[in-house]
Design a protein around this nucleic acid. Structure first.
Lengths: 343, 343
DNA sequence: TTGTACGCGTTATCAA
DNA sequence: TTGATAACGCGTACAA
């Protein structure tokens, strides 16, 4: 027996071919288009594959097939339940289509995000999922040059043309703000995530302003405090709001986590929610219902968004459609943290 | 000009070489070991790289270099905050070392896990992280055959020999159970995740039994209800426990999510926690402190575990160490959900 | 239906 | 220091 089989190493196509007494081409066909091969031959080949414990070499496959069957996602952080949820659904749907998920996180940092995008592109991602529209133009340019299909999730903005799947952050927040205003609140404050490179947060803040304008109130009346993500930061922001603007009767937070922090701060300060001050969130993650009192918030279909994102990206990769955009519906969930304005 | 440069596509090493008037070997060296190349040449090459916007082809690189700088993890689900946390830290640390994370989830399903492991191996993972020891032997055999270094996380069992980083689930739960017993509880029940292929859950249940044995109580007295992961399932399990074993004064859950469900069920049933019944959890995720009353639980250093796992795997890949095992410390967090036994 | 043979883009070995 | 050139393992025309 000649030694073209290195029996110490990982088995290759050639090993399988030798074992099954066929050519490497036939083995390859067995694996990739089994219908193009004879029944008996296939059985023999598959048995050899089993016997040797063969698994294709990724590099070789990627090189020859010119695709990796790998799709990447850059998200702010998996510790935020909204992204964990969406990403989980995204991964499940990708799996159903034989794709694997490559993940990196940006920690809400624009520079880091750019690095991550480049790293994932360098890992041969066939397509990439990004959160929100806001980012430096050269990232988009790079992606275009590398010919990597890109999909935006979490945002839907009718004025943007890039393929995206998400919801109208601004309109959703406007609707919630209308309800707040409907409860008689005239002094509204907003606790927001940093809006600089985060169109989701920015649009939500704008959504509140829209609602205020609609009832003839000056949108510049809105008190806004920006703070990083976290329960503790939400606490501090709430304290700041109530200290600097003591007439505030409703604090609208751009996400549930900040809102939970606000609730906690309120309790510590002896402020009753919703009797003294109403608090609202955004996302409707589990803590929204666990909070005391339960949080009025905007329900976002995170799982559905993840699943749709996967489907869209796969369609785009297949060339079925170029640049569809999909808007998902949100829904206001009124719970006890929202009540009528005092007096 | 000959047409060996396909100026429509993504630039290759050869394009750069042509552009800089050097060989492909030199370009490769510039990129991988710049010190082995002349100053002037390097400048010229780097400029060409910039000009063309060259990025290496991943497949080719992986094929030639025989590694992908990619590390995989198979976790039950990212929707469980403990895994989301750990995975986030894992990914961050990998990133610091130039590695990228490939993710799949098993949904707590053994067969699915096996599929995922094979899929990730086929994606060229240089190493792989798995949760817990329990799985079919052929998965380990496959991984060995493919020569893919494997690390177990979330479990540390002195009797196991595989490389792992985790904590002693059994001992931690024993310690918590001792505290419960120390509060005078004699009728303890346990709400567990399915233990069939989950050594973490199984060990935690056993940990309670150990504590009972230590005080001379028969460990078969322990009432155990198994249920899938989730707040709602935790609710149902608590109802079942209190219906079938009404003398129960302490319900120890194997994780915080089930425990939060138990708290909710208790409230609905008019059972006071901790006056009538005490409830404990495990993990110490955010909802443990948000719950009403706050949950007594076992604090697990999830982030540290993720970070350490990344470090260990990287060391193993470098051949620095073969099969280290690392035990992390846990800590009991006593909060208001645990109180003295009634009467 | 099956086999031959070449190309994919990079790394690494050897000479020069 | 640089350049040829041979792997690397697989997919796929094309031929048989």
């Amino acid at each position: 027996m000649t030694n073209n089989t290195k029996d110490n190493g990982v088995p290759t196509l050639a090993d399988v071919a030798l074992h099954a007494n066929v050519s490497t081409a036939t083995v390859s066909r067995c694996l990739n288009s089994p219908e193009r091969v004879g029944e008996k031959t296939r059985q023999r080949v598959m048995k050899a594959v089993q016997d040797l414990g063969y698994a294709p070499n990724f590099g070789a496959q990627a090189l020859a097939a010119r695709q990796t069957n790998t799709i990447a996602a850059v998200i702010p952080t998996m510790e935020n339940a909204v992204f964990a949820r969406g990403l989980q659904a995204f991964q499940e749907e990708l799996g159903r289509h034989g794709k694997t998920l490559l993940v990196a996180s940006s920690a809400y940092d624009a520079d880091l995000e750019e690095q991550q995008v480049r790293a994932l592109a360098a890992r041969g991602a066939d397509g990439i999922l990004l959160i929100g529209y806001d980012r430096a133009p050269d990232i988009y340019a790079f992606l275009a040059k590398q010919q990597i299909p890109t999909l935006i999730a979490w945002s839907f903005n009718p004025e943007e043309t890039r393929p995206s799947v998400g919801f109208n952050n601004r309109a959703a927040m406007t609707e919630l703000a209308r309800q707040v205003i409907g409860h008689g609140h005239k002094h509204i404050a907003c606790v927001s995530a940093p809006t600089a490179s985060n169109d989701r947060a920015r649009e939500r803040v704008e959504g509140i302003r829209d609602a205020m304008s609609q009832v003839g109130q000056s949108s510049s009346d809105l008190v806004v405090v920006e703070t990083p993500y976290g329960i503790e930061t939400g606490e501090r922001a709430f304290r700041q709001v109530m200290t600097e603007s003591p007439r505030t009767t409703a604090v609208m937070c751009v996400n549930d986590v900040l809102a939970v922090g606000a609730l906690r701060a309120a309790r510590e300060m002896g402020i009753k929610v919703p009797d003294d001050v109403s608090v609202t969130g955004f996302d409707d993650i589990e803590i929204a219902t666990l909070a005391e009192p339960p949080l009025t918030t905007v329900h976002v279909p995170h799982r559905e968004m993840g699943r749709c994102a996967a489907d869209m990206l796969i369609h785009i990769l297949r060339g079925d459609q170029d640049g569809h955009t999909l808007e998902l519906a949100t829904e206001i969930r009124v719970r006890q943290s929202l009540g009528p304005a005092p007096n």
